[in-house]
Amino acid sequence: MAASGVGGADVDRAAAEPPGFELPLRLLMAFRALIDEVHAELARQGHPDMRPMHGFVFQAIGPHGTTAADLGRLLGVSKQAAGKTIDGLEQLGYVERHTDPNDARRKLVGLTAHGVDSLVKSAAIFEDVRAKWADRLGVDRLRALEEGLRVMTPGDTIHLDMPAWFGGG
C-alpha cells in the first residue's frame, strides 16, 4: 500500500508523475539547449553575432523583404523597436534597406547574402542537431515527441511574436 503525502496524495503516484509545472520548464530547457547548440555552431561557421531573436526577425523579413512597420507588427513590437533591430542587423551586415520597387515612398528591409548564408547554415545545423537527438533518444521516440508536439500546438501558424510575448512586451 502506498503512503499518503500532504493532502492525501499518493506518494508512489507523486514519485511517478512529475508536477504539472515541470512540463513547460522542460520544454523551455530543451528549446534553450537546442538553440544554444545551433548558435554555438553558427558562431564557429562565421556568424558569431547571431542571436536567437535574429531567427524570428529573418523569418518575418521573408524572401521578399518587409517594412519596419510590418516587421514590428509581425514581431509584436513597436515600429521604433523594429527600426532599432534593423539598425543593429544592418550594422552587422545581415540586412539592408532599399526602396520598394512598387512604391518609391516605402523602404523595404531585405536579407543580405550574409543574412541568407546564416539561414542556410542554420538550417543545416538544425538538421545535425536533430540527428544528435535521434541518436540519443532513438528515432522512434524523437518522431513520437515531434508528433505529440504537432498535436498539442497550432499547426498552421509560426508565432514570430514569441520573443515579445515572452518578454511581456
Rank of each mutant, 00 (worst) to 15 (best):
A69S: 06
G5L: 07
V38H: 00
A9Q: 10
G5T: 08
L92F: 13
T85W: 02
L27V: 08
R13Y: 08
P154D: 13
R141T: 10
E96V: 12
V151H: 15
I158W: 13
M53I: 14
H47Y: 03
G7C: 06
L119Q: 14
I35R: 01
G88H: 05
W133R: 11
L75E: 08
R150M: 13
G8R: 05
V116K: 14
H54L: 06
A33P: 02
R150H: 14
G20M: 06
H54K: 07
G76M: 04
A40E: 15
M162S: 14
L92A: 13
A69L: 04
R150P: 04
G55K: 02
A113K: 10
G169K: 06
L71P: 00
L34C: 11
A33Q: 11
T153P: 06
L160G: 05
P163L: 04
G7Q: 10
K84E: 11
A82Q: 02
A60K: 00
A82K: 00
M1Y: 13
G148R: 09
L119V: 10
W133I: 09
H114E: 14
A134R: 14
E96Q: 14
K84L: 04
E37N: 02
V151L: 13
R44K: 10
G148K: 09
E147F: 10
F31N: 15
Q91H: 12
E96T: 07
K84C: 01
A131L: 10
M1W: 15
L160E: 07
G115Y: 08
G8L: 09
T157K: 14
G76H: 05
F126V: 13
E41A: 03
T67A: 11
M29C: 10
D128L: 04
A69F: 07
G110W: 07
H54V: 08
K121Q: 09
A43I: 07
R26L: 05
A40P: 03
L75G: 04
H98E: 13
G5V: 02
